[in-house]
């Protein structure tokens, strides 16, 4: 099995339609990310495909179902299935979201928000601890896309993530598109958010496309993963990398999926941005 021996490089979200091309791609440093929930099966072709991919490329497991921000502990059965996949595929990184999706036996296929109170911080610290202990691995936690200006926050999102990382040893997965979408929807500065993130905690970066809401236009952006990465997001990405240094970076696409080559072109752009020559500090972004 290959490991990430080229330093932090750029990867691609693996889609079933692209298995063959993904497997055959000679791109240097290419790695793939999947949602483990799609591979929680007893057997069959899906696991066989992922086995084949993993023999050739490094893999990241990016979960959507631990529901770390629920008002209850993560589901023990789900954790056990996650651990079985981690043991089988030895991902170079595992990640989850600062959100909830399941409680009291009902799963909502979305990443839901919550008021960032100190009580919720304590709950999520406990949940991340529990998950990391059960998995025997460190998790990276991803900032969500937000659509509602909830009241009752006691901490800012960066402050909350920083405290979570400090208390649990987890790292951060910075989704630059989510920062852009949330900043637009809630009216804060994406640049200030990115500049305040604790650099040492950042273990991975996500890039994806968004779309304006059909009824509300540019005032309500949807984290739809159905379009190329926006230029504004590439600009924010360059700013982040200039400050914190190169980090494994993933281009995600989950809908309106184009040809593999088209996705690879976006991935290659991220890959080039991570190369040393591309990372000469930008004068306007070198501080921060």
């Amino acid at each position: 099995m290959q490991s990430l021996n080229h330093g932090p490089t750029a990867g691609l979200g693996l889609k079933p339609a692209h298995y063959d091309e993904a497997l055959a791609s000679p791109a240097v440093g290419l790695w793939f990310e999947v949602h483990p929930e799609n591979y929680m099966v007893d057997g069959g072709p899906r696991l066989a495909w992922l086995d084949a991919i993993r023999r050739e490329k490094p893999l990241s497991l990016h979960g959507v179902g631990l529901s770390l921000a629920a008002d209850e502990a993560p589901d023990a059965g789900h954790l056990a299935r996650l651990k079985a996949l981690a043991d089988r595929y030895e991902p170079f990184v595992m990640s989850e979201h600062l959100a909830w999706s399941k409680r009291r036996g009902t799963y909502h296929p979305d990443l839901l928000p919550f008021p960032r109170t100190r009580a919720m911080l304590a709950r999520i610290v406990e949940n991340v601890d529990r998950a990391q202990t059960a998995l025997g691995r460190r998790l990276l936690i991803e900032n969500p896309s937000l659509y509602l200006a909830l009241e009752g926050h006691e901490l800012g999102e960066v402050e909350f993530l920083d405290a979570l990382a400090g208390a649990t040893g987890c790292g951060l997965l910075v989704d630059v598109n989510n920062v852009f979408v949330s900043a637009r929807n809630l009216g804060f500065s994406a640049e200030a958010y990115l500049d305040a993130l604790p650099a040492e905690a950042i273990g991975e970066v996500h890039l994806a496309g968004h779309t304006p809401d059909p009824n509300h236009g540019e005032t309500l952006l949807i984290d739809s993963h159905d379009a190329p990465v926006a230029e504004a997001v590439w600009t924010l990405y360059a700013r982040l990398i200039a400050r914190v240094g190169p980090r494994p970076t993933l281009v995600e696409r989950d809908d309106n999926i184009p040809a593999f080559a088209e996705l690879m072109a976006e991935r290659d752009r991220a890959h080039a941005a991570l190369a040393p020559a591309a990372r000469a500090p930008l004068p306007e972004a070198a501080h921060g």
Binding site: D110, Y147, L148, L150, E151, D213, N215, H216, L220, I222
Partner: peptide
């Protein structure tokens, strides 16, 4: 309401739509 005074906040629909779409697609 204690967390979202605007009961017509368009963001609520985003969550409702995503969940409905996710279930129907599965």
């Amino acid at each position: 309401k204690p967390w979202l005074p605007d009961t017509e906040a368009p963001g609520l629909k985003v969550y409702r739509n995503t969940i409905a779409r996710g279930r129907a697609e599965v």
